[in-house]
Amino acid sequence: MTDRTDRVVPETERRRRRPTKHGTVLSERAIVETALRLVGQHGAQAFTVRRLGIALGADPSAIYRYFHSTDDLLLAVADELIGLGLAGWQPTGHWRADLREVGLRIHASSLAHPQAAVLAAYRTTGRANEIRAIETMLGILREAGFPDPDAVALYHAFIDQALGFAVLDSAAVALPATAQRADNGVWDTAYRDLSPTTHPHITATADLLAADMRRSAYPLALDLLLDALAARLPS
């Protein structure tokens, strides 16, 4: 993607004084919020600055006064998603409850914006929301009593688990409705029709499989990870 570093100017100089033809006062915030909506509608791969300019009612070139490149803008969208997950959350001081709440918030925010979640999970933004999230989670672990090497390693395991499930579950949510119904229906057809002679374990648990495979395994996986963290906590 084209780098437009030379065109980015300070916030005080780039602020548009008049609304666009759609009534939007162009700002970094307005651009990111609109981009997040468009990514949700069309996916990151189909997202273009031209389409964003049309949605904002602005010349696409004006967007490069706020962002170096299209990729720079998509990183800002990914960072916005992180911020949405932590919005309004306050730590309680109980490390396990706090980590669990953060994990569930990350997962829920991703499912609310599944197309953007696939983008956010594998990018490192280096922006304010990501920095705040890392500082928060490392603080929870260090203040719980984990030595620094453990705190870093456990943070890594925690966030990769959260983002991994976020991508997996978001990809399923982003499927067309017909594909979702077809995938879910497999548990009621192919797996129920197996012979107990050849597949005794599947047939014995077919009802449980059909119910359980329709929901995310993340809450259980998160609790298992937190159990493992608690077992490693120095006394």
Rank of each mutant, 00 (worst) to 15 (best):
M1R: 06
M1S: 15
M1V: 11
M1N: 04
D3Q: 10
R4Q: 08
V8I: 11
V8D: 05
V9A: 06
V9R: 15
T12A: 14
P19F: 04
K21G: 07
K21C: 08
H22A: 13
G23H: 04
L26D: 01
I31K: 00
L36R: 06
R37P: 02
V39Q: 00
Q41P: 07
H42F: 03
G43A: 02
G43Y: 02
A44H: 12
Q45I: 03
Q45S: 15
V49P: 00
G53L: 06
A55Q: 13
A58I: 10
D59I: 13
S61K: 14
Y64G: 00
Y66M: 00
Y66S: 00
Y66K: 00
F67R: 01
T70I: 07
T70C: 10
D71S: 09
D72W: 12
D72T: 06
D72Y: 08
L73A: 02
L73T: 06
L73Q: 02
L74H: 15
A76G: 08
V77Q: 01
D79A: 11
L86N: 12
W89Q: 13
Q90L: 13
Q90W: 02
P91K: 05
G93R: 10
H94W: 13
A97R: 14
E101G: 00
A108C: 11
A108R: 15
S109R: 11
S110Q: 14
S110R: 11
Q115L: 03
A116K: 01
A120V: 01
R123Q: 09
R127P: 07
I131H: 12
R132W: 10
E135A: 15
M137F: 02
L138Q: 12
L141H: 08
R142F: 03
R142P: 02
G145T: 08
G145P: 13
F146E: 05
D150K: 05
Y155M: 12
Q161E: 15
G164M: 05
V167A: 12
V167C: 09
A171R: 15
A172F: 15
L175T: 11
A177N: 08
Q180T: 03
R181F: 05
R181S: 11
A182F: 13
G185D: 10
D188V: 09
D193F: 09
S195Q: 10
T197D: 09
P200V: 05
H201S: 14
T205D: 14
D207V: 11
L208W: 10
L208G: 04
L208N: 07
L209Q: 12
D212P: 00
R214S: 09
R214N: 06
A217K: 03
A217D: 05
A217R: 12
A217S: 12
A217I: 03
P219Q: 05
L220K: 10
A221R: 11
A221N: 03
L222Y: 00
L226F: 03
L226S: 01
D227T: 07
R232I: 01
S235G: 06
